[in-house]
Amino acid sequence: MDVTNPNFWYALMGLSVVLIVVIWKKNQALLNNTYVAVTLSLLFAIAYFHLVNHYLMDNQGLDYWYLFRK
């Protein structure tokens, strides 16, 4: 599990989206459960912001994971 790899975060974000959609289809009430909603939202947001950080640094030819790779 390499956190410096964007694919990891894509997978995480994908997972959260899939879960949201699946839960929504199966059981709408479950999605509105506070704990479920918080978990899924955090999962999505964490993955999203890591991707933002990674790609926007990458675009400038810089490495977001500078400190972690060393």
């Binding site: 949201i20 929504w24 709408q28 999605l31 509105n32 506070t34 909603a37 918080v38 899924l40 939202s41 955090l42 999505f44 947001a45």
Partner: peptide, 11 residues
Amino acid sequence: WAKFGDIFMGC
């Protein structure tokens, strides 16, 4: 999905 939406926005 209003409640989920609110929580999502907050998070």
